[in-house]
């Protein structure tokens, strides 16, 4: 199996695992999220958004919990084996419907995963075939999506004042919403975050820097997960890391798992 196929397969599995854990953590809140939703109704959706809102458009309003259970089943299937494209399409539609209904609970991680689930409909892992230009579209869009997220958030931070003057992390750490402050917050840490996010989109194109930046990213996201409590968003980003996993690492894993490698790619 090719390195690219391995990475795509890992990505698909991790994506569904994320979805599975998200659903399991959301089910105790199903009453407020979906059954008697707390989030105000979204406005007139239009044709495309109406398709994504689902409930009350092409699905009965009271079907949220059965849909969540069906999505749980799809997530289990996708986490352990390849699924047909139509299950991928339903997974995306159901996730969109549930997250639209509970939009007050959404964050950047939710939106990232909606995009990932859309493009994953078109991902395929078929070791017997070469990847043609069209089959590379979803893979490249997903890979670039990660870089875009870092670049934009870095540029947005440059647009303010507190990240450049080094006070931003102090403000976050002292915010009772995200605290308690456990890390020694220094201006250097602010600049390191800024530097990491702005340089990530360039650093991942070369082998040695890719390894260092991916490792730094793992530390960064685990930090935001367990220090700031933004767990779902942190792991959503880490799922995307699998598409940038270094070839040497893939080869090593394949050797360890005794999978025959036929070629390297991208």
């Amino acid at each position: 199996m090719k390195a690219l196929d391995i990475r795509v397969m890992w990505f698909q599995r991790a994506l569904h695992l994320w979805l599975l854990v998200w659903l399991l953590s959301a089910l105790p809140a199903a009453e407020w999220l979906w059954e008697h939703p707390v989030s105000p109704e979204l406005g007139d959706p239009g044709i495309v958004s109406g398709l994504l809102h689902g409930f009350g458009v092409w699905m009965p309003s009271g079907a949220a919990v059965p849909v969540a259970i069906a999505l749980l089943l799809f997530a289990v299937i996708g986490a352990f084996k390849s699924r047909p494209w139509w299950i991928g399409a339903l997974t995306w539609l159901f996730f969109c419907a549930l997250t639209d209904r509970a939009w007050l609970a959404n964050n950047g991680g939710t939106w990232l995963m909606r995009n990932a689930l859309f493009w994953s409909i078109f991902l395929r892992v078929d070791p017997s075939k070469e990847h043609g230009p069209l089959s590379l579209v979803p893979i490249q869009v997903l890979r670039l999506q990660l870089l875009l997220a870092y670049a934009i958030t870095g540029l947005q931070k440059l647009h303010g004042t507190t990240w450049t003057d080094g006070t931003a992390l102090g403000i976050i750490a002292s915010d009772p919403t995200y605290g308690p402050s456990l890390l020694p917050v220094t201006p250097g840490l602010c600049w390191a975050v800024l530097l990491f996010q702005l340089t990530f989109p360039l650093a991942v194109w070369w082998g040695p820097t890719r390894i260092v930046w991916l490792a730094a990213g793992v530390v960064f996201h685990l930090g935001t997960a367990f220090w700031l409590g933004i767990v779902d968003m942190a792991f959503a980003f880490l799922v995307f890391y699998l598409l940038w996993f270094p070839e040497e690492g893939v080869a090593w894993m394949m050797r360890s798992l005794r999978i025959t490698s036929t070629a390297n790619t991208t």
Binding site: G46, V48, T153, G160, W163
Partner: peptide, 22 residues
């Protein structure tokens, strides 16, 4: 973008919020 690919990358950006609100 909005109908299908909506996303925002403004968490703690351009500056983190100066107030918490409970």
């Amino acid at each position: 973008v909005r109908p299908v690919f909506h996303q925002t990358w403004g968490l703690f950006a351009p500056d983190p919020p100066l107030c918490s609100c409970e």
